[in-house]
Every structure is written in structure tokens, then in C-alpha cells.
Design a protein around this nucleic acid. Sequence first.
DNA 1: TCAATATATGAATATCAAATCATATGTATT
DNA 2: AATACATATGATTTGATATTCATATATTGA
Lengths: 101, 101
Amino acid sequence: MAKNPEALFLTAVGDRHRMRILNLLIEKPMSVKTLSKSLKIEQSNLSHHLKCLFDCKFVDVNVKGRNRMYSINPSIKKIIAPFNSYIRDYGAYLKTCKESS
Amino acid sequence: MAKNPEALFLTAVGDRHRMRILNLLIEKPMSVKTLSKSLKIEQSNLSHHLKCLFDCKFVDVNVKGRNRMYSINPSIKKIIAPFNSYIRDYGAYLKTCKESS
DNA sequence: TCAATATATGAATATCAAATCATATGTATT
DNA sequence: AATACATATGATTTGATATTCATATATTGA
């Protein structure tokens, strides 16, 4: 069944790693190498995540020597802020959908 | 690997059906029956999604006769608004993480 | 108490996304 | 041109999540 934009959005951003990537990039542009070190995500795996973020236009790239600098697309900042604020206030209450069955 | 609050949040809300549920409930409380009809989600499946939303405190329930009225937890409204606004403006650009390989 | 209605639950299955691995591509440096 | 470095890609494996199905529970009304 084809996904609606809401679902596309949520799967795109809805990942432990991708959210952390965005939260780092919101501060400043970074190369894959730097991201990989900071977040301890293996390079190839990280590249896959970046591709996903890029395809959805959450991040931009530009080439700088042999590095590729990823930067955040400003449009998405509006969402990250309320998201982080929610996590700060209510994060402790969250559960997986499975548990407490 | 244990999930961080960010990931918990995103998996909880990050689902085609659950987002639509929240977007309906934001207008007014509804019974499972009503939700099921409006969203054309089969009852048992819907109940599973509601449980997930409830466990994460995104919705509340109260019993009204033999119905159970689900209502949205106000704390989450702050996120739904910017989310919907993003979708409205940029939804068309979203892609699945797989395609265009 | 019995039947009807509304909802929840657990287990089994099906579907989808993430991680990994091996390798390819592109750029810079010598 | 050859090597090294940085990153991307495709295929495969692995793991997680959604759906379905059969059934249980709870409430109401006859």
C-alpha cells in the first residue's frame, strides 16, 4: 500500500540515527567522516541514512575537496525544536509499542 | 539495542495509521468504533495502535457506557501543528528511503 | 442470566526497514 | 598514473513492526 506524505515523513525522520544526525547538523555542517566519528555510526550505514535524509530534502550536501559537507535544510528546523522540547519534558514516559502487554 | 527516547517517540508516532488517529482526535474525543469507521481501520488492528498511543501517553481513555472514548493528550498538540505545517509545505518532496537507488 | 455490543489481547504471519559486507566511485596527492 | 582517502552503492542478512485471526473481557439491556 502506497505511503501518504505523513508516513513518508515519519519514516524518514523516525529513526534513532537520523534524528541524531539532524540534531548534530542543526549546529553546523559536517563531513561524513566527522558525523561517523561523533555518532559512532559505521560509514556505510551512515551514508545510507544520509541518502535517505537527502532524498527527502532534510539535508543538503556540497563537495569540499574529497569531503562532502552535509548541512541541514532550514525548513526542517521548525520541527526539530518542538520535538526536542517534547522529549525533554515527556521523554521519560515513552514506551515501546510492544512492552507491558 | 535499547531505544533512546527520541526513537521511542518516533516509532510511536511514526506510523501511517497512528498519525491519522492523532489528527482525528485532535478535533474531538472519539470511540474506537467511530475511529474505526472514519479511518477504515479494522477494529482489532486499531486497538493495537491505540494501545501503543496510550502507553506513550499520547492519548487518554475514559469509559462511557460500553464505549471507550479516546482523547488526545494536550502535550502532544505542540508537535502535531508544526508537523502538519511541514507536510503542507514540503510533503510533495518526500520520498521513501528506498527508491531512486 | 443470556444475548448483544464494544473493545482488548495474544499468537502467528507478513511486511518493511536497518545493519552489514563487499565493492565501486570520485577526488587529491605524489 | 598510482596510491590513498572519503564516500556511495547494491545485495544480503537480520531484526523490528504491522496486520490478521481467533478469542477473551467488559458493559448494557431484555
